[in-house]
């Protein structure tokens, strides 16, 4: 499916776009592109350039300036490690090291089979639960390396099962 979208780029949902020629629309356009596709592909940049008349190189400059924009797709399970001050003083580094060791991915990387992505985020607002990670929408707090390892293994099991069902069906 991923190939399809990159090979033959479908124009964005017009409703999402609402581009009316106003200046300052570039960032909202990029945000809707990322919302739709999960990341910003080269084709998306070219398409936006075509619509707005802003040179692709300038758009690329904006994309790479902001932390929010990704030029590669994310994994199925996105692990966000909180690196706010409270989590830092409560051992966020040990948490990242454990994920690194268990899943073999570093910050801003996605595991080979596309199952996990690891991101670092600033305060997610539950400092009382520090150190904290969020996997997709689920928050896990007051972590220790041992506790975290158990959680990660349960996700690995899940991935394995999903892969199994996929092969069974296909």
């Amino acid at each position: 499916m991923a190939e399809q979208t990159t090979d033959k780029f479908k124009p964005f949902n017009v409703d999402l776009w609402k581009y009316d020629g106003q200046a300052g629309a570039l960032i909202p356009l990029l945000q809707s592109a990322q919302d739709t596709y999960g990341y910003i592909s080269e084709k998306a940049i070219d398409y936006i350039s075509h619509v707005t008349g802003i040179p692709s190189a300038d758009i690329y400059g904006v994309v790479t300036f902001y932390a929010q924009f990704r030029t590669k797709p994310l994994g199925k399970y996105v692990i966000k490690v909180c690196n706010g001050t409270a989590c830092h003083v409560n051992g966020a580094k040990g948490i990242a090291d454990t994920i690194n060791d268990e899943l073999n991915i570093d910050y801003d990387e996605t595991s080979d089979e596309g199952a996990f992505s690891l991101l670092s985020v600033a305060c997610i607002g539950c400092c009382s639960l520090a150190p904290v990670i969020v996997i997709n929408d689920e928050t896990y707090g007051r972590l220790t390396p041992a506790k975290l390892r158990k959680i990660l293994r349960s996700y690995k099991q899940k991935v394995k099962k999903e892969a199994q069902t996929a092969t069974d069906q296909g």
Partner: peptide, 22 residues
């Protein structure tokens, strides 16, 4: 206007540039 994740945009002139789409 939704920011796109740049700490420096808390600075007022950077924030204005960001609203302008730069």
């Amino acid at each position: 206007k939704e920011g796109a994740g740049a700490f420096v945009c808390g600075e007022e002139t950077a924030l204005i540039a960001s609203i302008e789409g730069k």
